[in-house]
């Protein structure tokens, strides 16, 4: 499954994720992609090795005299952390299931017009994350972007002016790109989309409703 992914995260995003400098919505996107993509996971783990080297060389600050005992006390009240195993039967990888509270059937969709539905996920305000449902063969209105928008396919596929995107593929859109994603005819398309700025729609109807949709 994972070797079929053609469109990956950028090194910039993976570095910022590894260093811990991304807004929550983007962290969610990266964690979800890494759950499906071993190529980007290897890159992220290599970047973590950079962090390990810096930790090894960053100097020392003396701990409190009772720090070790205090830490043993914390250990005795804590519990072993369970592994978060892959469940390849789910449409939503575990990081997304944590936000939705379950798999696809538990998503609370809201219609946004032309059959397209969305569900906004609760993240900090620096960037926003939402799930998109595009009925088989349907289109998302033609739009541009004010900031960075990442869209990752979770089910089905869509095509736009750039290419075709299937499960695990990420499209990175910025100010330069105007596009109209169209879902493949065979299957409804579900995507995770994150953005650090509102989208810019080209037709007047979507622009009117944009403030209410929070996209």
């Amino acid at each position: 499954m994972t070797e079929l992914i053609k469109h990956h995260l950028t090194d910039t995003l993976l570095t910022a994720y590894t260093a811990g400098n991304l807004p929550e919505a983007f962290n969610l996107m990266v964690a979800t992609h890494l759950s499906l993509c071993d190529t980007c996971r290897a890159q992220a783990e290599a970047l973590e090795a950079v962090g390990g080297c810096l930790l090894a060389e960053c100097g020392t600050e003396a701990m409190a005299a009772d720090a070790l005992e205090a830490t043993f006390a914390r250990i005795s009240t804590g519990t072993a952390v369970p592994a978060r195993r892959r469940d390849s039967c789910s449409v939503l990888p575990q990081p997304l299931r944590d936000y939705v509270g379950g798999d696809v059937s538990t998503i609370r969709w809201k219609p946004v017009g032309m059959g397209v539905r969305q569900a906004i996920l609760p993240t900090s305000n620096a960037a926003s994350a939402r799930l998109l449902f595009i009925p088989a063969g349907a289109a998302v209105p033609d739009h541009g972007h004010r900031g960075v928008e990442l869209t990752m396919v979770l089910q089905g596929a869509f095509s736009d002016e750039m290419d075709r995107f299937a499960r695990g593929d990420v499209e990175v859109a910025d100010e330069e790109l105007e596009h109209m994603p169209v879902a493949d005819p065979g299957e409804d398309c579900i995507c995770l989309a994150v953005t650090d700025a509102p989208l810019r729609f080209n037709s007047w109807i979507p622009r009117l409703v944009q403030p209410f949709l929070r996209i």
């Binding site: 759950s35 996971r41 978060r84 195993r85 575990q94």
Partner: peptide, 8 residues
């Protein structure tokens, strides 16, 4: 922030 973690 919450920090979503990938699956193991």
């Amino acid at each position: 922030d919450r920090r979503p973690e990938p699956e193991d």
